[in-house]
Structure formats: structure tokens, C-alpha cells
Simulated assay, not measured.
Amino acid sequence: MEDALRPVVVVGTAAAVTVAVGYAVDRALRAADARHPETPLWHLLRRCRLPLQVLICAAILRGGYRAAHVVRGRHLTATGEVLTLTLIAATAWLTVRGVTAVTDSAYARYAAVSRDVAKISRLRTQSTLIQRVFTAAVGVIAAASMLFTFPAMRTLGASMLASAGIIGIVAGVAAQSTLGNLFAGLQIAFGDMVRIGDNVVVDGEWGTVEEITLTYLVVRTWDERRITMPVSYFTGRPFENWTRGDPRMTGTVLLHVDHATPVDAMRKRLHEILEQAPEWDHRAWNLVVIDTTPTTLQLRALLTAKDAGDLFDLRCVVREGLVAWLRDEHPYALPRVSTAEAPGAPMTG
């Protein structure tokens, strides 16, 4: 009778303690979240409930499975190994969840009080890469700990340690590209070259940085394509970052018109168009003649906007408005090919 009750007592105790501790911790975090709604930390820490329960259950069963006589004989060692591996995996899982909650909470609190978009974007990029580096490190440590629970693996590790130098050199040469991207990712995170949300131009393509990992970077173009590039590209080649520092931009619209075009009236019309355009930030504007050809004048309309997206829209509005004004009010000012003889030219017989 006692032998039959032991497994029930051990397993039941493990289940009861697991459920009770998980419930108590969740209630405590709920109460802390209600008392401090200004910080999301307590709400984020509730994600740790499941790995905590797995850890507690595995620890109780690991400590009492021998006395419970749940398994016997050759299965006893195998059960102990499985519980040990589960304990290591649950510890790593809980650690990653806890650190992720802390970093996400720090980012959320800073983003809620800061008005500096550039710093918020930089912190987001750094926190994301830090989380991924930490997760990878914890995963490697957990995997190594699992392997070293097996005696055969410990022996193998000791024999391989003598040749670790040669293996390290070979691995370094073989993984040169991967390691280069890894260090490039860290350089981007802490060097503030490019951040999530930045508008960049790479290989002639304009887009917004959507994701940054340790090895690659994703740029979403204006037509919703995704360009995936190795992060080493941004540390080894020049690229344009239109939103690093100050996102405000100055743009131009070029037009070819006839020599008879009333430039002063066109300049006033440009100002009227800009006053009606919500994309214009009122910093600067101008219209000047920058070049002449035998048949046309080349005009440059200068305008400003708060960012690259508004600047593109504003250039389209100005170009369309000026061409429509010339067509309706001064059609003679549009470029044309002259087929009549010049005034005063001698008549040819």
C-alpha cells in the first residue's frame, strides 16, 4: 500500500505546489501592476508564469522521483536524465523571459516619456539586438549544460579540449562571413549608424528599415517590397540615411519652359501652392532659373518638408500644380518646337 501511495504523493505534491506557486506569483504580479500602472514590468513578468511552473515541477520531481519508486531498474537513470534536461531547459526559458520583460519594460517607459524619436528608435534597435544576443548566449550555455550531463559527452569534451586551438582556427575561417555579420550587427546597434524606422537608400532603392537582426537587415521599400541585406553591407559600403539626426529634408522640382515664361508670376504661384499644401513645413522655398538652352529655360523650385515621405508628396503636388497653371494661364510658356521663321529673318526664295 505504501509503495502504491508514494508515486501519487510525489506527483500530486509536485502538481499542487506548481499550481499554487504559479497562482500566487500571478496574483502578486497582478496586484503590483494595479498599484504601479505607469510601468509595464509587472504585466510583462506574468509571461514568466509557465516557465516558472515547469521549473518548479521539474525540480520537485527531480528531487523525489527516486524515493517515490515511480520507475525502477534501467529506466531510473533515464528518468533522472530527462528531468535534469527539463530542469536546465526550464531555467534557460525562465531566464530569457525575465530578461526580455525587463528590457521591454525599460524601452516602453522611455518611449512613453521621451519626445526624441531618434533616441527612441535607437533604444529599440539596441534592446532588440541585446535580447537576441542574450537569448543566443543562454541557448548555447543551456545546450552545453545538457550535453555535459552525459558522461560520454564529458569524456568527448575533455579529449576535444586539447585540439580546441586548431578547431577554433578552422571554425573562424569557415564562419568568417557569419562572424563578420555578427560583429557588424553589434556595431550597428551601438554605433547608431542605422535604426529601425530610418529612411535609407541602398543600391538605388529607397525604403524604411523594418527589422534588424544580428546577421541581416530588412528594408521595406515604398512599393511594399522587402529587401533583405547582410548587416555587413552597412558597415562596409556607403549608404544614405535620410532620418539620422534631423529627418527634415530639402527637395527640388525641375521644369523646362519657354523663354517667354513670366518667371515672377510663376514664383508667386509656387508660393500659393506651397501655402495650400499641408506637407510644406514653411522653412524655405524659392524659384530660380538655373540654366538655359536654345529653346527653353530650366527652372528649379526649391521646397522643404519634415521628412522624406512628405517631401516626395510635396514635389508631386508642386510639379502638378505648376504645369496645370502654365497650361491654363500661360499656354505659350510650355516648351514647344518652333516651325515658324524668326521675326526679321530674310525671306528665302
Score class of each variant (00 low, 15 high):
199 N>T: 13
117 V>E: 14
56 I>G: 01
123 L>G: 01
43 H>W: 12
170 V>Q: 07
237 R>Q: 14
125 T>K: 05
103 T>E: 09
311 L>T: 03
187 Q>I: 03
247 P>F: 04
18 T>L: 03
12 G>R: 11
45 L>T: 03
243 T>P: 08
120 I>D: 06
87 L>M: 11
51 P>G: 04
144 A>D: 04
171 A>F: 15
179 L>V: 12
122 R>T: 03
215 T>H: 14
66 R>E: 13
16 A>Q: 05
178 T>D: 05
114 S>K: 11
113 V>C: 10
75 H>K: 07
127 S>Q: 11
227 I>L: 15
171 A>W: 15
225 R>A: 08
348 T>N: 07
148 F>P: 00
154 R>M: 04
311 L>H: 00
309 G>D: 11
162 A>S: 12
183 F>T: 08
99 V>H: 08
36 H>S: 09
205 E>C: 02
341 E>Q: 12
67 A>G: 12
340 A>Q: 13
223 D>F: 06
115 R>L: 13
265 A>C: 02
156 L>M: 12
289 V>T: 14
156 L>D: 10
319 R>K: 14
197 G>F: 01
302 L>V: 15
117 V>P: 01
51 P>V: 01
17 V>D: 08
47 R>K: 14
122 R>F: 02
198 D>S: 04
22 G>N: 02
102 V>R: 10
228 T>I: 10
334 L>I: 02
159 S>E: 14
268 K>H: 12
188 I>Q: 01
163 S>W: 10
96 V>M: 10
288 V>A: 13
142 A>E: 02
86 T>N: 08
177 S>D: 13
183 F>C: 02
6 R>L: 13
31 A>S: 13
204 G>K: 09
33 D>H: 11
140 V>W: 12
11 V>Y: 05
241 N>P: 08
349 G>W: 10
204 G>Y: 06
188 I>T: 04
239 F>Q: 09
28 A>N: 00
109 R>M: 11
178 T>M: 05
77 T>R: 14
164 A>N: 03
283 R>C: 00
247 P>V: 02
29 L>F: 04
190 F>Y: 14
217 L>T: 01
79 T>V: 11
149 T>Q: 11
128 T>R: 15
162 A>Y: 07
49 R>W: 01
145 S>A: 15
96 V>N: 06
205 E>H: 14
234 F>E: 03
35 R>F: 02
238 P>Y: 13
118 A>P: 00
120 I>G: 00
43 H>R: 15
325 W>G: 00
341 E>I: 06
61 L>S: 05
95 T>W: 09
30 R>K: 11
321 G>I: 07
342 A>M: 10
145 S>H: 04
209 V>E: 11
174 A>V: 12
346 P>K: 06
144 A>S: 11
210 E>M: 10
180 G>P: 00
268 K>C: 05
208 T>D: 09
249 M>Q: 14
274 L>Q: 08
160 M>T: 04
327 R>S: 07
94 L>A: 11
17 V>S: 09
264 D>Q: 09
49 R>V: 12
197 G>R: 01
